[in-house]
């Protein structure tokens, strides 16, 4: 391809700029969480930990952190289990209604969260299970199961189909072939799907806000503080939230990537 040097550098600079735009809010949120001004701008004020202290001493935040942790770990467990079962079904079996089956599984992320929030709120009220931690967990599992399914399905498609058949021929029944062959092969995908679904659940605010009742999660607390006024506490909580979700995402990716390298 005829390559124009100037054009090339222009494109690289542009790409860098796009990344600056994408990471600017994350970067500034962390910077401002250590900044003494109530309304942060440049030049920056003094270095301070007072926002972290405020947050640390707030019992509501601790309560919310506990709820968030319960919700995201439970969600990740349910969603990964559902996602694994579904991915395996798609991998191994073919049946007439499969397109509908897959649609049922993969559709939730295409429905706007605000609609899901309203629908879940009304449905849980109807079933008499609204306003509980369980309601958030159920709603989040519906939302995140497709991610789990996609990650594990990708992993299964890298597996040699004769592996499972070989296990059967060597006398393993379906259950022990599942336990000894399929699950170990999928382990990296299971770990990373667990982390990613936990991260999505940990950050989700619209559904949580609608269905949580008095059991606030961290994002709901943030939403309520933000609606009130400008309060740099949000930056402190936000930095913590970023730290948690980025750690989860990075673990997920590293687990997937290193395995791939080892096998190649």
């Amino acid at each position: 391809m005829t390559d124009n040097r100037t054009l090339r550098w222009f494109l690289f600079a542009y790409l860098a700029l796009v990344f600056v735009f994408i990471f600017a809010p994350i970067f500034f949120s962390v910077v401002f969480s250590f900044n003494s001004d109530r309304f942060p701008t440049i030049p920056l004020g003094n270095f301070t930990l007072k926002w972290y202290q405020t947050v640390w001493n707030d019992p509501d935040v601790w309560e919310a952190a506990r709820t968030s942790l319960t919700v995201s770990l439970s969600t990740a467990t349910i969603a990964t289990a559902l996602g694994f079962a579904t991915a395996y079904t798609d991998y191994r079996y073919s049946f007439r209604l499969k397109p509908i089956y897959l649609g049922l599984v993969l559709l939730p992320p295409t429905i706007p969260l605000i609609i899901m929030a309203l629908a879940m709120l009304a449905w849980f009220a109807k079933l008499g299970i609204s306003g509980q931690v369980m309601s958030i967990i159920i709603a989040h599992s519906v939302l995140t199961a497709p991610f789990a399914m996609a990650i594990i399905r990708l992993r299964l498609s890298q597996m040699d189909p004769s592996l499972e058949a070989a296990a059967w021929n060597l006398g393993a029944n379906e259950w022990s072939a599942m336990r000894r062959v399929i699950v170990p092969f999928c382990r990296p995908a299971i770990i990373s799907s667990f982390c990613l679904t936990a991260a999505v659940s940990f950050d989700e605010f619209a559904i949580s806000w609608f269905v949580s009742g008095l059991n606030k999660t961290i994002p709901v607390i943030i939403l309520e503080i933000v609606t009130g006024n400008i309060d740099p506490q949000v930056n402190a909580i936000g930095s913590f939230v970023f730290l948690v979700s980025m750690t989860l995402v990075i673990i997920a990716q590293v687990v997937l990537m290193t395995r791939r390298k080892k096998e190649n």
Binding site: A199, D203, G238, V241
Partner: peptide, 19 residues
Amino acid sequence: LIIPFFTSYLVRIFSWYVI
């Protein structure tokens, strides 16, 4: 590019508000 997709949208918007 995948990282921001799994981080808090709400906090990023608040950050833009200040910026």
